[in-house]
Computed example of a mutant assay.
Amino acid sequence: MRPESEEELSEMVRNTDAPLRIFGGGTRDIGTPVTGAALSMSALSGITLYEPGALTLVARAGTPLADVEEALASEGQRLAFEPMDMRAVLGTDGAPSMGGMVAANASGPRRVQAGACRDSLIGVRFVDGTGAVVKNGGRVMKNVTGYDLVKLMAGSWGTLGVLTECSFKLLPVPESEATLRSAPMSAQDAGKVMSAALGTPYEVTGAARAPDGHVYLRVEGFSRQVAYRCGQLQSALGGAWDVLDAPASAAQWLGIRNVHAFAAQPGDVWRVSVKPSQAADLVARADCPVMMDWGGGLLWFLTPEGTDLRARLGAFAGHATLIRGSQATRTRLQVFPPQSPPLAAISQGIRRKFDPRGILNPGLMG
């Protein structure tokens, strides 16, 4: 199925009782494999509103992310949250779509400074599991009608509704950027350095540790400000730091954002969100290659195929998600973090409200 309008999509959903496997560009193949009729959103494409002066954009869910980024770049603007592209690490083809980006709440290294995808999302339109068209939010941040529902759709992976349109607030592209690179250091030392850097007034917009131990700290803004802030950071943190210029900095953060370090390596890839203060302990428990992002709040682990990383890590205050694994592993292990009984009951109640027949990506999130 490939609807070409919201009305056609609504009719399709309303008139079927069969499970639906919903996808946009097909680049984010994670979660428990879904058995159902394929529902492609690729035909619902196009930017429906772009007001550079108001820093606002509205696009249909099937719009390729690259088309939006090209339009924004022509006006010196961008999506602030630096959405991750999973194609390299998952080995998928296709083109990331706006709806898929929102459904995954795809957010990159700049989250430490600009927030996640859901923080820039100001409005959605979607078709729920009954075929009803729902509109929530608006085109400006002053319109907060249904604000919680807008947030709810980000990261719902198509289990609550099929997104048809998304509205975003935007930010200008800074004039320049630079990145400080350290010598290799332990996860514990890296955590301390990144925490210290993020605690300075120098507006660090990226703080990560690569699998080889190098720590990267990004600064963005006007050229003179970037040079000054890099110098102040070096003085405040001590040690020896190399400075990557704007092109080298952009290339480095592209690799960090998309986890290129694990893209061509065999094994499973896990994504763990945790308090930065606990990161070093989890790295030690995992005993496998790791990349640290968000100042230590996001950990990417490369494990041997079929490894139950949650069992290896034991109890901790955070969440572990299996991002890359075989279908057998994704069926055997719960892909998304297990929920406590009270939270699971709330989640199930919400799904029954929006999808009473249980036809939207059933089982994908466990």
Rank of each mutant, 00 (worst) to 15 (best):
W241L: 09
A250S: 13
S10G: 05
G137C: 06
G31A: 05
I256Y: 03
C166G: 04
M98R: 00
L49S: 14
A261P: 01
L244V: 07
I122S: 10
A183Y: 03
L44H: 01
P338M: 10
A183T: 12
G213Q: 12
E4T: 15
D281M: 14
L244E: 05
Q234V: 12
D85Q: 01
K142R: 14
G91N: 06
G91W: 05
T130Q: 13
S347M: 11
R285Y: 08
G199K: 14
V102K: 03
W270C: 02
S45Y: 01
R351H: 06
A251Y: 06
G296C: 12
T63F: 01
G358R: 00
I22M: 05
V68K: 02
C166A: 15
V215Y: 10
T27I: 08
A207Q: 09
S326F: 01
P83A: 03
R285G: 02
L333P: 08
P338C: 11
P174Q: 08
L65W: 09
S156G: 04
L360Y: 07
L233D: 15
K135R: 15
A240W: 00
Q348A: 15
T164W: 10
A208C: 13
L72A: 02
G62N: 02
G191H: 10
G108S: 08
G131S: 11
S186E: 05
D268F: 03
G238H: 06
G146W: 08
T145D: 15
G221R: 04
T303I: 01
R285I: 09
A73N: 05
R118D: 05
A116P: 00
L360V: 09
A250Y: 07
W157H: 10
A66Y: 00
L198E: 06
G191W: 08
C117G: 03
G26M: 03
G146V: 07
S176E: 15
D293S: 13
T48A: 12
S42F: 01
A236C: 06
R125W: 08
R312G: 03
W270T: 05
C230L: 14
P342E: 10
H214A: 10
T92N: 06
Q77P: 09
G318L: 11
G349H: 03
D67Q: 13
L254T: 12
